[in-house]
């Protein structure tokens, strides 16, 4: 590891957790602010049912900007998502200009709408389980996302979501 690897790894971890909080709080601009212009985002899964790697959603930075800008125009389930992220590994390149990280996440849906908000609101339900596979650009003591693959285990997704995961 580079002599500054430990510091760089810490910066990467910090960025992943900041992204988690921005996404939880639906501060989409803050989240995109952690991403490079060439950022690429994908939600993927493997389906044993059809024996295929699948891509449920993908896009570049511009696509994600459009996606979040249009969110207020869509009807959507109002129940907020809460991510529990644990950074498992951070690998900093020898030149300390880039890094990759793997994090596990569990996402709960804190019911607001539910099936019947009179009954369901206030309850937290398991929504998604998976791992983030992230790639970062390291510069000026900061880590910015170049790529995020959200690899989910779920193929049962019920109502799904409009929001970045």
């Amino acid at each position: 590891m580079h002599k500054n690897g430990a510091d760089a790894a810490s910066v990467v971890r910090d960025t992943i957790y900041r992204a988690t909080m921005a996404l939880d709080d639906q501060k989409w601009e803050d989240w995109l602010g952690l991403c490079e212009p060439e950022f690429h985002y994908a939600i993927t899964a493997f389906s044993p049912e059809i024996n295929k790697d699948m891509i449920y959603l993908q896009g570049g930075r511009k696509d994600m900007e459009t996606l979040v800008r249009l969110l207020p125009k869509h009807n959507t389930d109002h129940s907020p998502l809460r991510r529990h992220t644990s950074v498992y590994t951070v690998d900093v390149d020898d030149d300390a200009k880039s890094a990759t990280a793997v994090s596990s996440f569990v996402i709960y849906q804190n019911m607001l709408d539910g099936v019947n908000s009179h009954i369901d609101s206030g309850e937290s339900r398991l929504f998604l389980v998976g791992k983030y596979h992230d790639t970062f650009k390291l510069e000026n003591g900061k880590a910015k996302f170049v790529k995020r693959e959200v690899r989910i285990d779920n193929r049962r997704l019920d109502k799904g979501s409009h929001w970045p995961i």
């Binding site: 899964a45 389906s47 049912e49 059809i50 295929k52 699948m54 449920y56 099936v115 193929r155 049962r156 997704l157 019920d158 109502k159 799904g160």
Partner: peptide
Amino acid sequence: VFHYHKAIID
């Protein structure tokens, strides 16, 4: 087939 997912809805 390139896509599969399921929903169970009440």
